[in-house]
Design a protein around this nucleic acid. Structure first.
Length: 486
DNA sequence: ATGTAC
């Protein structure tokens, strides 16, 4: 018997895609855990990820169950691919439940171009995008903002971007939270976080972040695709990045405070990385206010990148923005905590939903989704790994009952970066992708090796789990033509 | 993910 078979015997099977971590799995669990996985994906789950789901279940005020999505893997304290909701009065807020890259997220832009318009020129277009949008570790922007502008960005998010010429008012409507969360506390952002953030607006970063030119390969749900403005053969552009050094520094700074706070408020932590504080404490609220600053910064970052990408297409095709039809379909956050109203045991309740590597998937008619999408539900954007399909889904009523209105966020890594670098050569991977009709422009070959398709789970397997569970339903599959990587 | 270690 393989080591991984031991995973399933520790769990109760609820249905083909739901496994319960019993409350007795580990002392101090206040609720059970729930893993949303098919059996083959469950067999790939690390024991450590299961333990993290159980650890999160010990935190005060946790609601219903500690959850892991099908792409879950080991994270800082909380698993990546984790969802945990805490009572507004009796719960906690934890930076580990959000992650270091605050408001890492994805945006999808549609166009009036067809695959055949773009494919012949993809290398040239990628080169221009690569030069227009700085990428890589520590990359610096050509845009510089002063401290007052940075405050404006922290407080007003996407509104700042549009008011300053980076996009159009419609872009704001098509962002989760309209690209701006309320409650920014700029005084809770350290000088160091400001210094790191000031030169990085409009930069892609590194790792699994990317800008990808894709085409719609298949539509599964015509009605929803129509609402989102998507059709087969159409070219789309997907941007995946976050809050760069600013968010990272904000997380680091406040983790220190919350580690002390957990002791001060006598919160039992099975793992120090679960540092947290009661929701109404100054420590928790200060973190939350700083987290909002980083979230708003990330929306501005993606907005500026989109603006520059639009510029490249305008220059290249000699068309204006209306002719090109490069409209924002949607922008989702997948690393953030939000105060939301949910129905629990038939009562409306305010809870802090922590989604870390998980996407909000709100249902039709929800007031927090754009008017244009009210009949079909929120667009849920699931990027694949480099060279594999990405998916567009829509949110459902069931997601509100099953997962606090949440779904998965991506493919999920199965091999460490170090191992991948040892196993693969960047040039070789690049050649293989090229043979499949996918061009890659990256800062260095080693990065391509670290992000090889083989080091991730299959995005289609992961998406099938959320689709079959009904927490989000498939609308369209997008295939890459060209990728810009940091 | 990340000025890839304080």
């Amino acid at each position: 018997m393989s080591e991984n078979n031991s995973i399933s015997v520790q769990l109760n099977k609820i249905n083909d895609n739901t496994w319960e971590v019993p409350q007795g799995y580990r002392p101090g669990m206040r609720v059970p855990g729930r893993l949303f996985l098919s059996f083959p994906l469950l067999e790939m789950l690390e024991q450590g990820t299961l333990d993290q789901v159980a650890n999160v279940a010990t935190l005060p005020g946790i609601q219903k169950y500690s959850m892991a999505m099908p792409d879950a893997h080991l994270g800082y304290g909380f698993p990546i691919g984790g969802v945990a909701a805490f009572d507004r009065e009796e719960g906690v807020i934890s930076p580990g439940g959000v992650g270091f890259d605050i408001n890492c997220g994805v945006r999808l832009i549609r166009s009036n171009l067809l695959e055949s318009d773009v494919r012949p020129y993809i290398k040239d277009i990628l080169e221009k995008l690569f030069h227009a949008i700085p990428s890589g570790v520590g990359s610096k922007s050509r845009l510089r903002v002063n401290d007052d502008q940075l405050d404006d960005i922290f407080i007003n998010g996407s509104n700042w971007a549009v008011e300053n010429g980076y996009g159009i008012p419609e872009d704001i409507e098509k962002c989760e939270s309209q690209g701006m969360m309320e409650g920014a506390l700029v005084k809770q952002v350290s000088t160091k976080a400001r210094q790191r953030g000031r030169p990085q607006l409009g930069t892609l970063g590194s790792g699994n972040h990317f800008l990808e030119i894709q085409y719609v390969a298949e539509v599964y749900d015509r009605k929803a695709a129509d609402a989102f403005g998507l059709y087969e053969g159409q070219v789309t552009c997907m941007i995946h990045c976050g809050s760069r050094g600013a968010g990272h520094q904000i997380c680091t700074d406040h983790l220190r405070n919350l580690t002390q706070a957990a002791q001060k408020y006598n919160i039992y932590l099975p793992d120090k990385q679960l540092a947290c504080a009661p929701t109404d404490s100054s420590e928790a609220q200060n973190y939350f206010g700083a987290m909002v600053c980083a979230a708003n910064y990330a929306w501005v970052n993606r907005q500026i990148i989109m603006h520059w990408a639009r510029g490249v297409f305008q220059d290249f095709f000699k068309q204006d923005i209306d002719e090109l039809g490069m409209n924002l379909v949607y922008d989702v956050a997948h690393n953030v905590a939000k105060l939301e109203e949910h129905r629990i045991e038939n009562k409306k309740k305010e809870i802090y939903v922590h989604r870390k590597g998980a996407t909000r998937a709100f249902p039709p008619m929800h007031p927090d989704i754009p008017q244009a999408y009210r009949k079909v539900g929120q667009p849920v954007l699931i990027p694949g790994s480099m060279g594999t399909a990405s998916y567009v889904l829509h949110g459902t009523y069931d997601s509100m009952d099953i997962s606090f209105g949440s779904a998965c966020h991506g493919a999920g890594r199965v091999m460490s970066r170090a191992h991948a670098k040892h196993e693969f050569r960047g040039e070789q991977i690049q050649r293989e992708l090229s043979e499949k009709g996918i061009s890659v422009r990256a800062t260095q070959p080693a990065l391509i090796a670290e992000e090889a398709p083989e080091v991730y789970k299959s995005s289609s397997d992961v998406v099938d789990v959320v689709h079959n569970l009904g927490i989000a339903r498939k609308v369209a599959r997008l295939m890459p033509i060209g990728v810009v990587k940091g």
